[in-house]
């Protein structure tokens, strides 16, 4: 699949934003000491909303006819994209109410605002889940059509959110809270495990082949002519191909950037190291998301000559 930059930015930043928001609210409501600080909560909520908003705005950039974007709420009944849009919008008023609560009441929130926090955190996760289901529901792309996809999106969102939260906390307070550090380390480890399982899983040969796609299952099938010389919408969208060695290099870079180095940096526990860990992780997740697209092989490629997906 063609990795559209706007979609990479969208999923990574909004994922981190939703993760940050959800973790922060839950930690605050759970009474985590470090988070009973309205400055930190306000900064965290603003940062989360900013990242989510940047992500959502970025996502509209890949629309070819954005003037009809408002219509995307219409098919909530069947479309995960529509659901994502609805939940993303629903998130805002609730999150803003929570934000207002922090602003007005500090960390000691009334139950109404606390409830808003919980609902917003839930909506954040649901939105993130909907985003992931856009991909996971596509039977045409075996690398996506798996429960690992929502797991991937949720764990990456929480991991990057945790690092953002840790960064803010470390910057605004003196030193990184051990709980956040542990949570961060744990989520990085979880993310890494999920990713490694995913990479292992997509490496197994499976799914349709050019033979099953064309219906000629008894012999080899080769494309002789695609019926067009230059690229088409289909080849541009689905024909994205990266050399195997480049993919491998990028996978190593992704694992290092997104997981290994942030993990080591976070272990250090300095504010500066935490900041760096968060930034590297976000960069690593951009690579991760790029690979998520670039390694996804749509079945229509079989009709264009690929032997398998």
């Amino acid at each position: 699949m063609h990795p559209a930059f706007s979609v990479l930015i969208f999923t990574v930043t909004s994922g981190a934003g939703y993760g940050l928001f959800a973790l922060m609210v839950l930690a605050q409501l759970a009474g985590l000491n470090a988070l009973q600080d309205s400055t930190l909560l306000l900064s965290g909520a603003v940062l989360a909303l900013l990242m989510i908003t940047i992500g959502l705005l970025s996502s509209t950039l890949h629309l070819a006819n954005p003037k009809n974007a408002w219509r995307s709420f219409a098919r909530f009944r069947t479309s995960w994209l529509s659901r994502e849009a609805v939940f993303a919008v629903l998130f805002y008023p609730v999150a803003l109410l929570y934000l207002f609560g922090i602003y007005a009441q500090g960390s000691e929130l009334s139950s109404l605002y606390s409830a808003c926090g919980v609902v917003a955190a839930l909506l954040a996760m649901v939105t993130l889940f909907c985003t992931s289901m856009i991909y996971a529901s596509l039977k045409t792309i075996r690398q996506w059509c798996t429960a690992l996809t929502p797991l991937n999106y949720l764990s990456m969102g929480l991991m990057s959110g945790a690092l953002c939260l840790a960064t803010l906390q470390a910057l605004l307070q003196d030193g990184l809270s051990p709980v956040l550090r542990s949570a961060g380390l744990g989520l990085i480890a979880l993310g890494a495990v999920v990713k490694l399982i995913y990479l292992f899983w997509i490496g197994k040969p499976a799914g349709a082949t050019i033979k099953t796609a064309t219906g000629f299952t008894q012999a080899s099938v080769r494309l002789l002519d695609a019926g067009h010389s230059a690229g088409t919408f289909l080849t541009n969208e689905f024909g994205y191909t990266v050399a195997a060695n480049k993919l491998l290099r990028l996978r190593f870079a992704m694992v290092a950037l997104a997981f290994v180095v942030p993990f080591l940096l976070l272990m250090q526990g300095h504010a500066a190291a935490t900041v760096l860990a968060a930034l590297l992780a976000l960069a690593g997740l951009l690579v991760e998301r790029w690979l998520f697209f670039a390694e996804a092989r749509h079945v229509v490629r079989l009709y264009h000559g690929d032997q398998r997906t």
Partner: peptide, 27 residues
């Protein structure tokens, strides 16, 4: 054509390559 926002998702869902985005209309 009046309602499409050009998100391409339908083309992703189609295994047959039956849908193509119009580069001019964006639908």
């Amino acid at each position: 054509q009046d309602k499409c926002m050009g998100c391409n998702l339908c083309s992703w869902a189609c295994p047959y390559g039956a849908r193509e985005l119009d580069p001019q209309a964006g639908t």
